[in-house]
């Protein structure tokens, strides 16, 4: 499969602050690749470097297996941190300017404006736009020249719930057309909903890279409820196959050691006289896995 972006050993320090440490990631064609991490983990720094606006301290990157020439960026649609446009130009004029920079001969600006739902305001100056409209114009701009890959940094930041849903829908619509998407986010939920692959960053270090499914199905837990929680606890703690046990409202959240089946556990509980009111497999949410990853690496 074609590699869209290869990043090798990228580091960036601002004086004594190390924003990024020896990062390597690979994005393949068709991926919806999430870069996930809390604020200050190096997401924007990474995207800034591969888009040519931040100079890396060490390391290299390559787009489309062809290097890092600025001409290659014309095939990328990118929206970093906030929509940056000329305030006194209207939406249409701003996109015309971007099309000129990208060497798009037939930019189909109207079509892109309609796709992003901003066509009605195309003749208003950018300075009069609301946050949501700015974001939509930026999305329309990233689609100019039918890019092979979209790079989005916190694309739903600062939007109202309706705007967030709209933008996520747009991203999925774009991804369904086979366009590769690289997206930075601190919202786990967003990555879980939109992405196929994910790299988790913390303080400039990569903690995990792989597809979202493998992160989700790493290990499953079981939720067990009973009318008599005290008895449940006593019985459970005697079961040798328990890896971890966590009390939740009205139930216990159990993780089993490798080689133990949930059927063995339920049989064990019944023979010990526990009345089970609730017994469910629970795939851990990405959020839990994410927090798990972060806490594991706490030095």
């Amino acid at each position: 499969m074609q590699k869209i972006l290869t990043v090798e050993g990228l580091s960036k320090s601002y004086g004594a602050v190390k924003a990024l440490l020896n990062l390597s990631i690979t994005v393949h064609k068709g991926d919806v690749f999430g870069i996930l991490g809390p604020n200050g983990s190096g997401k924007t720094t990474t995207l800034g470097i591969v888009l040519g606006v931040t100079n890396a301290s060490t390391g290299s990157y390559s787009w489309f297996e062809q290097g890092n020439n600025h001409e290659l960026r014309k095939k990328i649609g990118a929206l970093l941190d906030k929509p940056n446009f000329y305030p006194h130009l209207n939406g249409f004029q701003n996109l015309k300017l971007v099309a000129d920079i990208k060497d798009v001969k037939n930019p189909k600006i109207k079509e892109k404006l309609e796709f992003a739902g901003i066509a009605k305001s195309a003749n208003r100056k950018f300075i009069t736009y609301s946050t949501g409209m700015k974001q939509r114009l930026a999305l329309a701009s990233t689609l100019l020249g039918d890019p092979e890959v979209l790079v989005l940094d916190e694309p739903t930041n600062g939007l109202d719930p309706e705007g967030i849903a709209d933008v996520r829908q747009l991203i999925q619509k774009i991804a369904n057309e086979g366009i590769t998407v690289i997206m930075a986010s601190h919202l786990l939920d967003e990555v879980q909903k939109v992405c196929t692959h994910v790299a988790v960053l913390k303080s400039g270090n990569k903690l995990f890279e792989g597809n979202v499914q493998s992160l989700l199905t790493g290990d499953q837990g079981i939720e067990i409820g009973s009318d008599n929680l005290d008895k449940l606890e006593v019985v459970l703690s005697d079961f040798e196959g328990i890896e971890s046990m966590e009390k939740k409202p009205g139930c216990y959240y159990i993780k089993l050691k490798h080689g133990y089946k949930s059927s063995e556990l339920s049989a064990y509980l019944i023979t010990n006289g526990v009345e089970i009111t609730h017994f469910a497999h629970k795939s851990s949410s990405l959020e839990q896995e994410f927090l798990h990853l972060l806490s594991e690496n706490r030095a």
Binding site: H70, N84, Y86, P87
Partner: peptide, 17 residues
């Protein structure tokens, strides 16, 4: 101020251009 220089580079201009 408007970070449009940044955007120009992102969109594919070289710094020299």
């Amino acid at each position: 101020t408007n970070a449009t220089a940044r955007q120009n580079i992102i969109d594919g201009m070289s710094r020299r251009q």
